[in-house]
Amino acid sequence: MPGASTVEPVRIISYNLRKHRAVHELDALVAAHDPDVLCLQEGDTASLPDTAGGLVLAHTTQQNRLGLAIYYRASAFNLVDMAAVSVKKSLHDRVLRPAHERLLGVRLRDIDAGRDLLIASLHAAPLTARNALRRDQIRAALSELSELGWGLPQLIVGDFNYPVFKERLSEHMRDVGYELVMSDQHTYTRYRVFRGFYDFAAASGFVVESVRTLPQGESDHLPILVTAHPQ
């Protein structure tokens, strides 16, 4: 993309594990695509491994059994800080299973570049919720994420659960200082009527070079590989 920095890019995989079913794929996924960071959704946080293909577990959410996790390459980054963000719950969350924490962020220091970055894994409310609630959740989560380091480059990846009216979401993200970038192919395949683009990247202080959809495993979501340059 035009305007990309000469700084080495950061490679991030985001993957919704479909209620932990695809966890056994992580080592092979990392080995095949060599990411710097791995962001997960719908992982059984009590059962996630300490490492995935050589990446080290930074942190997981604590209040949701099926929650979020982030792994990072310890030879390239130091873990500085982390935060799990609770947002307004949807009706689905209240009736079926509490999902307090829908964003997990880490502050990483690039060892070679000597600068800090914010990376986050996001899982917005399911399709039973209104788009307006998802937008509110995302806005609140991004505001909390900034507390880890105001003004630092930020890259949020994950399951935005927003297959329709994406233009409205893009406008909303631009209004709060982020550029939303969709994947090159559909990322959700389980139900024909709901198939579409679900897994995105949102960047502030990063130039996103590509969001590439990876081959499908056992999850109903396809992993995405985000390549981005901090500005």
Rank of each mutant, 00 (worst) to 15 (best):
S183N: 12
E25P: 03
I70N: 14
L48I: 15
V23Q: 14
L148W: 03
L66W: 15
V193M: 09
E179S: 10
D184T: 11
F197A: 12
E25N: 06
S170I: 12
G177F: 07
E42R: 08
S143I: 01
A52G: 04
G158K: 06
A125W: 00
G3T: 09
L108E: 14
P98L: 07
R73I: 06
T51R: 12
A52T: 09
M82H: 13
S146W: 14
H123I: 03
A129C: 07
F200V: 04
K89P: 14
T128A: 14
G114V: 01
R11K: 13
V208H: 07
P9K: 04
A228C: 05
F194R: 12
K88W: 00
T61V: 02
R18S: 06
H24L: 02
L48E: 05
V10L: 08
H33C: 01
E8H: 10
H186G: 15
R11H: 06
L55I: 03
H20Q: 14
A125F: 00
P153R: 00
V176G: 04
E101I: 07
S219A: 01
V181P: 00
D184I: 07
I119N: 02
I12Y: 07
R94T: 10
L17Q: 08
L118N: 01
E25D: 05
S183V: 02
D44V: 06
I12N: 14
T60K: 12
R97W: 13
S47P: 08
G217S: 04
P215R: 08
E101R: 03
A83F: 11
I156R: 00
F200M: 10
D110Y: 07
L152E: 13
R190L: 09
E179C: 11
V157T: 11
H229R: 11
D220K: 08
L127V: 05
A76P: 08
L26G: 07
E209Q: 05
R18N: 15
V30C: 02
F165S: 13
L142R: 08
R135V: 10
R115A: 10
A140F: 10
R168H: 09
I138M: 11
S210M: 05
M173I: 15
A99T: 13
V37G: 13
R21C: 03
D159P: 05
H20T: 13
D199E: 03
Q154S: 04
P126I: 01
R134F: 01
R97M: 13
A129E: 09
H59E: 15
P215H: 09
M1F: 07
A31Q: 12
M182I: 04
R11W: 01
Q185H: 06
S75E: 15
H59C: 12
P163V: 03
M173V: 11
R21T: 10
I111F: 02
L55K: 09
R107K: 12
S5K: 02
L108T: 06
I138S: 05
D159K: 00
H20V: 08
S47I: 06
D184N: 15
E147V: 04
L96A: 03
H24A: 12
L79N: 08
